[in-house]
Every structure is written in C-alpha cells, then in structure tokens.
C-alpha cells in the first residue's frame, strides 16, 4: 500500500499581491473621468415639476378668473406682495432691512399666502430696473419651495382623486414686466 503523500501547508507564509493589472485599469480610468468631470456645478432655474403640481397649474389656467400672485420688487420700497382675487387686490409690503431685502420675512409671508391660497402655483415678478440679478435669483429661491421640509401644502391629485402634499409653493415664475415699454 502506498501511503498518500502528506501535503505540507505553511499557514504562516506571506505572498505579495500583484497590483500591476489593477494599476493599469486605474491609469486608464483616471483620464476618462477627468474629461467628464464637472468641477464647477452649474444648474438652471426652470419649472420642472412633479406631475401633480403641473396638473394643478393647468387647472389654475383653466379657471375663468384665477387668483394671481405678483411681486413688485424695488430697492427703495422693498417687496410688495399683491394677491388678486375676483378683481380685488390685497397688498402686503416687505420693507427693506439694513439696506437689503428682508428675505426671511418675504419667505414667511409667502408661506402664509400659500397656506391661504394652495391653488396658486404661478407667481409674476416685476423687478425695477436697478435691482441686481443676484437679488432676483434669491427672491425666486424664496418663492419656489418652502425652506422647512416639514411644511407641506395640499394639492388635489386627479389620478388618485384625493389631496396629496408637496413643499412646492410657487414654482412657475414669470417675469411680468419684460414686455412693458
């Protein structure tokens, strides 16, 4: 009888992992990723909305006398929030604070307006000629979405046949005075 040869396994032996193929893959990947990387992230402001909100905007357009919300922005007087309902205008003013616009008060007032009129999604802004572009962008940010994620507004979803919640306030922004002379 031949005795089976005993294989000796040395559990304490060390071996070096060959990293060369891994490095070769990485060397090829790095230039590819370098080309397609965006080091400065740029986005756009536009109205891309969830389906439910888009439908609500359409419903608002179909109404014969829709409620409208507009902002008149001036560097001296501040921001006037005008809500027009059945031909009647209700104006609220956000005065200037320390030489600049009071964005916190503006946001709080817009949240209140949205809570009172959840069916309004469109906002018309009319800045005066001297208002800097960065201030207009900031005002758009304040109007688009509620800062506090816990604040939700009801929107009627026609597909589900019930109210759903969104934190969008006035996502459709229109420059109302662009075509004025």
């Amino acid at each position: 009888m031949r005795r089976a040869r005993k294989i000796k396994v040395d559990h304490n032996s060390e071996f070096e992992l060959d990293l060369a193929p891994l490095l070769a893959v990485m060397v090829k990947l790095v230039p590819v990723l370098l080309i397609s990387s965006a080091f400065v992230q740029m986005m756009v402001i536009e109205t891309q909305l969830p389906q439910v909100v888009s439908q609500a905007i359409e419903r608002q357009d179909q109404q014969p006398n829709p409620k409208t919300l507009s902002l008149e922005i001036d560097q001296k007087d501040g921001i006037h929030i005008v809500v027009t309902e059945k031909g009647k205008e209700k104006v609220e003013t956000v005065p200037m604070k320390n030489g600049g616009f009071d964005f916190d008060t503006l946001h709080a007032k817009l949240v209140t307006v949205k809570k009172t009129h959840p069916e309004i999604f469109k906002i018309e802004i009319s800045p005066s000629g001297s208002v800097p572009y960065k201030e207009i962008v900031r005002i758009m940010d304040e109007a688009r979405q509620a800062r506090d994620n816990s604040v939700k507004f009801p929107v009627f979803d026609t597909k589900q046949g019930k109210d759903v919640e969104t934190n969008y306030m006035f996502p459709e922004i229109i420059f109302a005075n662009t075509m004025e002379g």
């Binding site: 990387s37 965006a38 740029m42 986005m43 756009v44 402001i45 962008v137 758009m140």
Partner: peptide, 26 residues
C-alpha cells in the same frame, strides 16, 4: 464630480454667476 448632465457648460471667466438652491440640470 462625474457629471451626467446632457449639456456641459463652461463657466465664463468674466462672469460671476449667482448661487441658487435649484437642482435642475441644464
């Protein structure tokens, strides 16, 4: 920093863009 946007925008050296909370790709 890999960008999956449809359009790659190159920032102009003379322009300082405003910042916004918008996250919509161009």
């Amino acid at each position: 920093s890999y960008s999956t946007a449809e359009v790659q925008l190159t920032p102009e050296s003379e322009i300082r863009l405003p910042t916004s909370a918008s996250f919509t790709n161009p």
